[in-house]
Design a protein around this nucleic acid. Structure first.
Lengths: 195, 195, 195, 195
DNA sequence: AAATAAGCGAGACGGTACGTCACGTCTTACA
DNA sequence: TGTAAGACGTGACGTACCGTCTCGCTTATTT
């Protein structure tokens, strides 16, 4: 039986949908995730609360959609031929993003959501993180083909070796997130990944 | 002048304090962090809400204290002389804990706290995580002295290389948390850490 | 200019009209007037909400129409020649109707309507109550002609003398609505109406 | 089992109680009963909605209390020795009140409530109407003792004979509520009540 | 017979109020 | 004075209906 006669997506108002996602992102930036309310999103978007609850499960689902919308433009990791330089660049970029409170607000919000709701966690992983991490996996495979990376290493595991320490430090605030730190992590990881 | 005539810790009711921390841990296990309420803790503990607000800033501070209380007994990393075996053991243990929903509830709650409140984040880091991670740092230093670990590596960074991937996979649910996985991470990290 | 290009009654769907009135009566019996909603009427009738709002002003207008439909068959007060017996009969019948919760639901709904909306009140009075009361007025006039009722009494006022006490007791629940009570009221009123 | 651990009346805030009842009466006069909302009462009274729901079942119960508070001062029917004059006076006063939209708003609201909620109906009857009607009963009994009223008439029934027609005309709007009408009703009723 | 237009079912929409929950503060009575 | 109890003002929750609106679809003229 359908929970409550599911609404018909064909009749959905695109204008409202966009207004809601835009409002959610604005408010996320202004008040932070914890103080974000569905009521405020509805008011800012000029929309009835029911229109939000009709299409989303709660504020978590809304901001997930809002962020996924923005992440649609894949960042495309460059391939200069020098895998070490390419990895160093992406690690530096990631560290820079985590170090900037404004930019990492997104990641912060999603992580909280991820920890509180298993269903959303899958969505976050598949729609937001996977696409990003997969570009690195692709680059690592190319490096393996070029003989610059050990062939016996699982690229997915190698990605975690590169990014894991970054998120660990960011989450636990165990140290500064500087460019020098980024290079240190890259060097250490490469020591393990080089043939 | 004190903001609101700070309460006198000497007159604090130890019985209530313990009941509150115990109730907080029970409810954390039963309902999860997001659905935990101060009201429920007070009711379960048979305590007035004011008694909680008198001594703690909110639910985050309470569960932090509750978990810190339990973590007082330091886990003490063993030193068998074989640093690789010792690291493998601690990585396996950590993976096992993260894989168990009941045990990782603690880590989940702390991580949310860490992401939501900077002031509490410091407390979490210093009172709960540092003691745990420091035991590994100590073991790595001993390994360096014994020539089993590269001397030019910062032990703190090495710890992140070991645990970062674990938390990354746990947070992002990018793969299974098995013993085989634990050993894979250990092997890869050791490839970077060996002289 | 018509406010919104008034709908054309000639093209009205009789099937829908009937379904709406029937559904309204059913729901009035099931849930009572206060809990009656336009949404429920539409759903029960298998009709779009707009079809209701196109033809009626609101739930009050709908149930008014629904009840008026049913009341079309005038009850026709008999004239046995004995005005006292005839009045006694109609008072007894009215008391019996008010005493029966199912039958008096109609009166209850109409009374609420009467109290809440002046425009509808007129409709209620003229379309539903007047026809009923007028039959008694007619009978009283005949009684006056026959010399059984004081000629100097306004029949309309006499009707109120007979039915007013009934509604008063029904509204205010100041006592039981029994046949004995009905006869008591009739006796007392006749004491005033007899020449 | 108590529905929800009933609140302790001893700790009730008298200031809030009064503010709520006052606000309810104000708004009843301003917007009418149908458009009255609990939310507006709370806002006007400077009170949390929960404080209303803690002590009352809904808006009906609130305005009942508010009106009952005001009706505490019994009107005391005078006894001039001439029962006909006294009754004429009270009937005139009642007609005047019903004829004034502002004054009869109270009665209108209560009547709607009475028709929708049996539990409140009893309260309305016992706390508001009985005290008023009983003063007339008392006067009628004195009239019976003085031989001005038939001794075989139930005073309660006589009261209904006097007031029933008034409420009937007011409810059904079957005619004007003038002083002349009041006297007509009194005359007719007295024709039945005189020995 | 085809074109036009209205009523129709369905139900999404912007709103308002509902009645509940938990927040963090305040008040009371007791120990 | 610390405490258990819990009432308080506040404000968000998620739901129910309101009355309006916009979709295709069906009917029933009107060309």
């Amino acid at each position: 039986m359908p929970a409550r006669s599911a609404p018909d997506p064909a009749r959905r108002n695109e204008r409202s949908r966009r207004a809601i996602l835009a409002a959610a992102l604005e408010l996320l930036g202004e008040t932070g995730y914890a103080d974000l309310t569905v009521e405020a999103i509805a008011a800012r978007a000029g929309v009835g609360k029911q229109t939000i609850y009709r299409w989303w499960a709660g504020k978590g689902a809304v901001i997930l959609d809002a962020l996924a919308e923005g992440a649609a433009d894949a960042p495309e990791l460059p391939d200069t031929g020098d895998v070490e330089a390419d990895l160093r660049a992406v690690v530096r970029a990631t560290v820079a993003e985590l170090a900037d409170p404004a930019l990492s607000a997104t990641t912060r919000a999603l992580t909280i959501e991820t920890l509180s709701d298993d269903a959303l966690a899958e969505q976050v992983r598949d729609r937001l993180l996977r696409p990003h991490l997969d570009t690195v996996v692709v680059r690592l495979r190319a490096g393996q083909d070029a003989g610059q990376i050990r062939a016996d290493v699982d690229p997915a595991q190698a990605v975690e070796l590169l990014f894991g320490p970054l998120y660990h430090r960011w989450l636990l605030r165990t140290g500064p997130l500087t460019e020098g730190y980024a290079d240190g992590v890259t060097d250490l990881a490469l020591a393990a990944l080089r043939p």
